[in-house]
């Protein structure tokens, strides 16, 4: 007998193809799995970034995992809304990222839609506008030694990461950007 639970578990266990220490469920990419009485499976996923190049591989891996668990057919739908956010990454996944040398994302303010108000005095008759529209997120701690880090680049090896260097141990490391 095909068990819905077995298929659900198999799909949830699919690793992220770019950051293989965490699963698509742990990252929040996997939104829904529904299994019919005969094992027909419908999966809903959402991309981290709209152009994430891993999506095709993730779809193929989901199909293969569900079939191996006994699903006769698998449909994978992609949704944009609600928009993926790093808030969906749980404590356990954050620990796995850190153990793999990737500094996990920090907290995001509840409402990040508004421009941060700049501080300081504006010349008479004018008002200050923020230069950086996303504000400055707090620097992540080095995942190896916990030291202070400096940002080397806003972008990194995948769409969701930036590149940092620890000022204590000197090691460069990836940081999963708050998003």
């Amino acid at each position: 007998m095909v068990t819905a639970e077995r298929i659900r578990a198999a799909v949830a266990a699919v690793p992220d193809p770019e950051i293989r220490v965490v699963t698509i469920a742990e990252l929040g990419i996997l939104r829904e799995v529904s299994v019919d009485g005969d094992g027909s499976t419908a999966v809903t996923i959402t991309p981290t970034y709209v152009g994430c190049p891993a999506m095709d591989t993730i779809r193929a891996d989901i199909r293969a995992a569900a079939r191996r668990a006994g699903a006769p057919d698998v449909r994978v739908d992609t949704v944009w809304s609600p928009a993926w956010t790093t808030r969906w990454i749980g404590e356990e996944a954050r620990a796995k990222l850190a153990a793999a040398g990737i500094a996990p994302p920090g907290d995001l303010p509840e409402s990040s839609g508004d421009l941060p108000e700049p501080v300081g005095a504006a010349p008479a008759g004018t008002r200050l506008l923020p230069l950086a529209v996303t504000g400055t997120p707090p620097a992540p701690a080095c995942p190896r030694c916990g030291g202070r880090a400096e940002r080397l680049a806003r972008f990194g090896s995948t769409a969701c990461k930036s590149l940092w260097r620890c000022e204590s141990c000197g090691e460069p490391f990836d940081h999963f950007k708050e998003h």
């Binding site: 991309p47 970034y49 709209v50 949704v79 944009w80 809304s81 928009a83 993926w84 990040s112 230069l131 950086a132 529209v133 996303t134 806003r154 972008f155 998003h179």
Partner: peptide, 27 residues
Amino acid sequence: DPVLAAIAVKSAKETAYHVDHAAAWTV
């Protein structure tokens, strides 16, 4: 249009980051 609104929500987050990058280089 809910589809366009959903695309815009995702894209707005990314574009804000592009602007930060461009503004930093401009300065």
